[in-house]
Simulated assay, not measured.
Amino acid sequence: MEQRSRLGVLGGMGPKATSVFIDQIIESTVADRDQDHIDMVILNHASLPDRTHVILENSPEQFLREIEKDIRLLEYAEVSNIAIPCNTAHYYVNEMQGMTRIPIINMVEESIKVIHEAYGDGCKVGILATNGTLHSGIYSESALKHKLVPHLPSDAMQQQIMNMIYKDIKRGVQIDPQELEDIIHQLITEDGCQCIIIACTELSIVPLSEGTKQHCVDAMDVLVKRSIELSL
């Protein structure tokens, strides 16, 4: 029997974002039958501590203890790569990688590489993310390393983004996509951004118009594509 790579998905951060990630993997895989799809081992660990809280409080101990248990389960399942559909959790990607020899797909680095390939040096990149992701600096540091110019939303805009993520999407409240599109439009027309990175998997759930998508790179999409490439 042909040896297949098995993808490990460390999910639950949040559960809806994980389900969207899995759906996108399935929809984006060229397949004529069940057997053409990717083998996945999915851990939907919803009870993990909130990543933004962990970063802002500088208290990662419990989070990393629970993550290590999940990684051991994925090792036992003999996965070839691990995907984590949560941007904020990537603040601890080095600690997580230190727990295992199984490669963890670095959602942040892969996304920044895609932007650099498309736009080149000096591109001003607006970052839409949680407070935890912005505070961690993971996207800003990666952008600077790749000769891009990171741009963060104003305090008022960031509060609007956090409300969308925590008060609406995580609670299952349907939001008007126009609200997110207006933010993206403002970052481009008023703040001079050339590209916007959707750096929160909750925001990836929001359906954007094709016109708006042209200005965006969604880290979830990048993770989906890289997961498929490595698994086939």
Rank of each mutant, 00 (worst) to 15 (best):
V9I: 14
V108I: 15
A17D: 04
L48K: 04
T133S: 10
H90V: 09
I82F: 07
I71M: 00
D218V: 10
L43P: 07
L180R: 11
V149Y: 07
C86T: 14
N87G: 04
L7H: 00
V222P: 07
A143M: 14
L10F: 13
S47V: 13
M1F: 08
G126M: 02
R171A: 11
M220T: 08
P150S: 05
A219Q: 11
E190W: 03
D23S: 13
L128E: 12
D23M: 11
K167V: 12
A83Q: 02
V93G: 00
I198Y: 06
G192Y: 00
P207G: 02
N163K: 15
Y139C: 01
T212W: 09
P153H: 03
L128D: 11
M164F: 03
S80E: 03
V217T: 09
G137K: 11
V9R: 00
C195H: 06
P207L: 00
T88Q: 11
S28L: 12
L73S: 15
N81S: 13
P60E: 03
I228S: 01
A199N: 03
E66L: 15
G211M: 01
T189C: 14
M99A: 13
Y139S: 02
N131L: 15
A156Y: 14
G137S: 11
C193H: 10
S111G: 06
Q160R: 15
E181T: 12
L10Q: 05
R226G: 00
K145H: 14
I55C: 07
M1A: 10
K225Y: 09
I112R: 08
Y92W: 00
E66G: 09
C200S: 11
M162P: 04
C123T: 12
P150V: 05
I102L: 03
L74Q: 03
S80H: 07
G12N: 05
I184Y: 01
G172T: 11
I184T: 02
P15E: 06
M107Q: 08
V125E: 02
R51M: 08
Q214D: 09
Y166P: 02
N94E: 15
E2R: 12
T189E: 15
N94S: 13
V224M: 06
R72Q: 13
E210L: 08
E78K: 14
I138P: 02
L128F: 13
I183D: 02
I188C: 14
R101M: 11
L43K: 13
D36I: 10
F21M: 00
V224K: 05
P153Y: 03
I112S: 09
Y166N: 07
L7M: 01
I198C: 06
G98F: 04
M99T: 11
L230S: 06
C195I: 10
P207N: 01
E57N: 14
V30D: 13
V224Y: 05
E75H: 09
M107L: 13
V9Q: 01
I205F: 12
E2F: 10
C123I: 10
V206H: 08
D182K: 15
I25Y: 05
L232H: 12
P103W: 09
P177V: 12
H37C: 00
D23L: 12
H116V: 05
E68A: 13
D36W: 08
H185L: 13
E109P: 04
L48R: 04
N58F: 06
P15H: 08
I112Q: 08
A156P: 08
C123H: 06
M96V: 05
V20T: 09
K213P: 01
N163D: 15
V173I: 15
V108S: 09
V149F: 07
